[in-house]
Design a protein around this nucleic acid. Structure first.
Lengths: 116, 116
DNA sequence: TCCCAATACCTCGATCGTCGATGTATCCAT
DNA sequence: ATGGATACATCGACGATCGAGGTATTGGGA
């Protein structure tokens, strides 16, 4: 496969990951990265250079909105919240993922196929 | 997600797809594309500009070897065959895929996670 | 007190995978 | 004879991701 160490096994899924993490609560960037590591048993470790552009792009496309809020400690944090459209997109992406998974498994699993 | 129409839902998996398709028999490029479409119910449609570089790269890395053979009709065909190393790589990639799937599902599914 | 690690945000250039277009040639049916 | 399917290949462009770097604040240990 000639993949580098930190290369995620199957790239492209980061946007769906972010949307899914925003489902249960508004979150800020740093928190998304930490929670992703935790939820995936340290398998996924999204880089900041990956996450922030995704967040900004999602906001530009109306999938999320953001607001700034200071933490107890006074540190500034920008929270991201799913919009109604973002919720729909998340649902669609989940369906796409499931379908992809199924088809991919069918091929990689190894059932025969008769060609015309 | 802002993906283009023909963008595969989750890119990066093409190499694994190719290795898996070569498992049961030696195959040539065009055949791989057709069989992939068939096995995945037309979901995956690998482009030639994607496949051939992958094939060449796999050969350069010793995962497959190739030989030319004319078909009945006399058309030239370059068949690709998994090497012993290719078989090992396929097995490893399958394990990685399964692990990825599991972790990804855990996050996208939506179980809670308590952060430290 | 001073410094470093962690928190928190962000941007930039490089790289890699994939696509779409294009090119070549052969075979077959119309 | 013309066009579509087969069959191989390469090229430039683009988008996603990474790694490195930059800024600033907070809290803890030496």
């Amino acid at each position: 496969m000639s993949r580098k160490k930190n290369d995620p096994a199957f790239p492209g899924s980061n946007t769906l990951l972010v949307l899914a993490l925003l489902e249960d609560a508004d979150k800020y960037g740093y928190q998304i990265i930490r929670e992703l590591e935790c939820r995936s048993d340290q398998t996924f470790s999204m880089k900041e250079g990956t996450l922030y552009p995704i967040l900004h792009s999602l906001e530009a496309h109306g999938e999320v909105r953001s607001y700034e809020r200071a933490s107890d400690a006074g540190r500034r944090r920008r929270y991201y919240q799913l919009t109604r459209q973002g919720v729909k997109t998340l649902a669609r992406c989940r369906r796409e993922w499931e379908s992809f998974c199924k088809q991919f498994g069918k091929v990689v699993g190894g059932e025969a196929c008769v060609l015309g």
